[in-house]
């Protein structure tokens, strides 16, 4: 993410068809938006598809963008809508296959263990890590949709709660109360992992 004035200038250039400006904006946001999208669907391929679609929509919308909101807000509003659609898709597909929606990347729990585990760790530690990951995802999935969305956006680097409120079109107070309720629920479910 860049300074607000820089981002607005980039959007103007993108509206004129400047692909360099587009690439620069993409590189500034791909990590934050990609992580947010992944946390919404737990599927790497789907998150990449949504990331691509987010920026394609931004490119299409740029000539009509009137600068009434921050560029970051605009991007995450697009991403949020796509993420909700992606979640539905994940739920439908995994309901058919009998897997849980929070199961690991691409629906294959444990398939990424070899990617994440330290080579020096034994199988027991790797399994422990995967169990922890699954517990966290299950705790998140147990939250009401509106609270989970606030948590995932609030944890995105560079977004303030005011921006979260704007992205979700909610009053700031509502965002705060949802975040507080979500944090409380997560703490109750995951406290033993934190203490460990």
């Amino acid at each position: 993410m860049f300074d607000d004035a820089v981002e607005r200038e980039l959007m103007k250039r993108i509206a004129r068809g400047d692909s360099d400006a587009f690439e620069r904006l993409f590189q500034g946001y791909e990590k934050a938006v990609g992580n947010f999208l992944f946390r919404m669907c737990y599927d790497t391929a789907l998150a990449e598809d949504c990331l691509q679609e987010t920026f394609l929509r931004l490119w299409k919308a740029a000539p009509g963008w009137r600068g009434e909101s921050k560029v970051s807000t605009f991007i995450f509003q697009i991403a949020k809508n796509l993420a909700l659609d992606a979640r539905e898709k994940v739920f439908r597909e995994r309901a058919r296959s009998g897997a849980s929606a929070s199961q690991g990347e691409d629906g294959h729990a444990g398939s990424k263990l070899k990617d994440v585990a330290d080579p020096g760790e034994g199988p027991a530690r790797a399994l422990e890590g995967e169990e922890l990951r699954q517990s966290v995802r299950d705790a998140l999935e147990s939250l009401p949709e509106d609270q989970r969305m606030v948590v995932q956006l609030a944890q995105t680097d560079g977004l303030t709660y005011r921006e979260v409120a704007e992205i979700l079109n909610l009053p700031v107070g509502t965002v705060k109360s949802r975040m507080a309720a979500a944090a409380d629920a997560l703490r109750r479910k995951l406290q033993r992992h934190v203490r460990n």
């Binding site: 992580n35 990331l51 920026f55 394609l56 990424k112 998140l140 944890q155 703490r187 995951l190």
Partner: peptide, 25 residues
């Protein structure tokens, strides 16, 4: 403590392939 745990454990274990995404874009 709990929110940091959530952030770490719900993030992708493998970085998204942004180069591929940009090329396709």
């Amino acid at each position: 403590g709990v929110l940091e745990l959530v952030r770490q454990e719900s993030s992708p274990s493998v970085m998204l392939n942004s180069k591929r995404v940009l090329a396709e874009l």
